[in-house]
Design a protein around this nucleic acid. Structure first.
Length: 600
RNA sequence: GGGGCGGUAGCUCAGUCGGUCAGAGCAGAGGACUCAUAAUCCUUGGGUCGUGGGUUCGAGCCCCACCCGCCCUACCA
């Protein structure tokens, strides 16, 4: 048994999630976490809504509301859709909690005391009316090089040159249209160069393990070459206050500085709510504990550089030395598991252009199983992958329904019709031994693939085994055994089939937990086979400290009843009724419908 | 501009250390069967492995150049 931290990327609270988001972090992390629990590991799976930063402020202003209203609404939406998707978080919280504020400020204080924060002046663009930082991408103007009128502050889309927003001709704010003010301002910079050697040693050690996806480790090592100090504060009045700058309420932490700390603060919040406030240390202080971070590729730099740098600085393990604070020496990531991007057809998702597919809409129309299965079988694991409705329908109809669902259904039907209960098992023939062995071997092969985050291959392997069982029924032809003299053989074949279906259901449970619970019932099981997450509204733990809400919804769950990753003997005599189909076949017409919906 | 990843059968993609590696699934064609949501099972795959060079006894797999797509470029969360 190993302690495993599943650290799942924090969705930005600017609206509902689209399926590309959950393909990147949501489903892969849940499949892994569910498998690791089944394999007997002690998993702590945490995440939450990322609620600070300029985009939230812009959204709130546009809606004419306070940022707190914006994030309250979006946090609730996101928590609901992730819970409905079945993501089995031990705690899905948010960054606007008093607990998170406290943990972020503790990390800053200790990193600073250890010498890894330096105060420096910087020239930045400010929104003249509010004094807020105006990120480069929120500035537009005429390109000084090619005179293109719609150049962005960071780059000209026309000539491709990288720009400094101060050089733009007639710069203007994309938010208000006002002319930005360029001023010199003080910020705290994380001294990344002082941590570069330690980061390099850590990355080399990770590379030696050979488990990271090659592109992730290479990219991480590459960005180390041009490492520079990076500002961890901003001129903005929305975010976590900076200790020592209490007299400057318009200076807050940079959203990414605080967001990654959420992995730690969420673990601490989880332990506090459990009533065992030090329990989190088993995942963070024990060097034997493993930690896996799940995200899309656009987040790699924050998880393989910024976050480990913050941890090294806190631990006092950079070039300037230092001592860890009260949280003790914190573990660096075991593995940064980054996904690529899911595209909609051949285009990127784009909320603004309506070229988007929201998780909640797919869940509402088709339920969680087809979406989870599609992402598992065809998701952007090692390269960008395309979502198309035609594929979605095909995967559902020919793999889930015709392959797996049909196996469940034909097995249960024959058992119900002939016996009404799981029949006993008599002497096994070679063909029976073979199929049982093939299924049993799946626990090793599928488990090995899942342990290494090869979800696509794991899905294919599980479905290959399902095919073996379908073949078994074709070869043994139990439906032809009508004579009384064949009764014992019929019992044995259907017993073996039931055993195989039960074990396949275990193998498929990490991928499609909702379906696993239904299949469990079909075979005469009681209650839930695998535990599901739930939404719970909790009270803020640190009312005096937080800037957030007095209460808020979280995702949590009790996963202690997770079934083991092993064959589970079916019990003769267990009643089995005539089944109703576990999966729903989709009319190919939905392809056209959905495409039309996209256009509209 | 710099960095990274990818370009393999109609479609979606596997191909670990260079030598049964030219593959799987879906779609298509033919057959078997009927327990099952016309589901299942069997048979069926000539695609210059983006282009052009090179290294090698031998290269999707190594090197160089080029074309195309995508991502990152640190104040996009």
């Amino acid at each position: 048994m190993t302690r495993v931290l599943s650290a799942v990327a924090w969705p930005y609270a600017n609206g509902p999630r689209h399926i590309g988001h959950v393909a990147g972090f949501g489903v892969p992390s849940d499949v892994f976490s569910r498998y690791m629990r089944m394999a007997g590991h002690d998993v702590l799976m945490v995440s939450g809504s990322d609620e600070h930063g300029t985009p939230i402020l812009v959204l709130a202003d546009k809606a004419g509301e306070k940022p707190l209203d914006t994030i309250n609404r979006n946090h609730e939406v996101i928590a609901r859709e992730l819970a409905d998707l079945g993501c089995s978080y031990d705690l899905y919280t948010r960054t606007s909690t008093g607990n998170h504020y406290e943990v972020v400020q503790e990390l800053f204080r200790v990193c600073k005391a250890n010498g890894y924060f330096v105060e420096q002046g910087q020239s930045v663009a400010l929104e003249p009316e509010t004094g807020r930082t105006l990120p480069d991408r929120y500035i537009e103007g005429t390109c000084p090089i090619c005179k293109y009128a719609e150049a962005r502050g960071d780059q000209c889309d026309n000539c491709g040159n990288q720009l400094d927003p101060a050089d733009l001709i007639e710069p203007r704010s994309k938010v208000t249209g006002a002319t930005p003010e360029f001023v010199e301002t003080q910020h705290w910079f994380l001294d990344l160069p002082a941590l570069a050697d330690a980061l390099s040693v850590w990355l080399d050690g990770r590379e030696a393990e050979g488990t990271w996806r090659p592109n992730v480790i290479k990219f991480s090592q590459n960005i180390l070459k041009e490492i520079r100090p990076r500002a961890m504060t901003r001129d903005i009045d929305w975010g976590i206050p900076v200790p020592g700058w209490e007299d400057q309420p318009t200076k807050r932490f940079y959203v990414w500085f605080d967001a990654v700390i959420g992995y730690l603060s969420a673990a601490i919040e989880w332990a506090r709510r459990l009533g065992e406030p030090d329990k989190w240390r088993e995942w963070w202080n024990d060097p034997e504990a493993l930690s896996y971070y799940f995200m899309g590729k656009d987040n790699i730099v924050f998880h393989s550089q910024i976050w480990p740098a913050e941890l090294l600085a806190y631990n006092g393990q950079g070039a300037r030395g230092g001592e860890p604070g009260r949280f003790g020496t914190l573990n660096l990531p075991t593995e940064v598991v980054s996904s690529e991007f899911l595209t909609m057809g051949d285009q990127q998702f784009s909320s603004s252009r309506g070229h988007v597919l929201y998780v909640r809409d797919v869940l509402e129309r088709y339920g969680p199983d087809p979406l989870r299965y599609f992402i598992c079988a065809a998701g952007p694991e090692t390269s960008d992958a395309a979502f198309t409705w035609a594929d979605f329908v095909t995967r559902n109809n020919s793999e889930i329904v015709a392959g797996w669902g049909n196996l469940v259904n034909r097995t249960a039907t024959m058992i119900a019709k002939n016996f009404g209960e799981i029949p006993p098992c008599h002497e096994l023939e070679q063909v029976d031994e073979d199929v049982l062995a093939a299924v049993r071997a799946g626990f090793e092969s599928v488990g090995d693939l899942l342990r290494h985050h090869k979800v696509r291959a794991a899905t294919a392997e599980a479905m290959r085994i399902v095919g073996e069982v379908n073949k078994y029924l074709t070869v043994t032809e139990p439906y032809k055994m009508k004579d009384e003299s064949q009764r014992q053989r019929l019992e044995t074949v259907l017993h073996v089939a039931a055993q195989c279906v039960s074990d396949c259901n275990t193998l498929l449970a990490p991928f499609m937990p909702h379906a696993a619970n239904r299949v469990h019932l079909v075979l005469g099981g009681k209650g839930d086979f695998v535990p599901m997450p739930r939404i719970e509204v909790v009270d803020e733990l640190d009312v005096d400290n937080g800037a957030g809400s007095p209460s808020y919804p979280v995702i949590t769950g009790d996963y202690s009843d997770t079934p083991a990753w092993e064959p589970r003997p079916v019990v003769p005599g267990t009643p089995v009724a005539k089944p109703t189909p576990v999966f729903t076949k989709l009319d190919p017409a939905v392809v056209e419908e959905e495409i039309a919906r996209l256009g509209g």
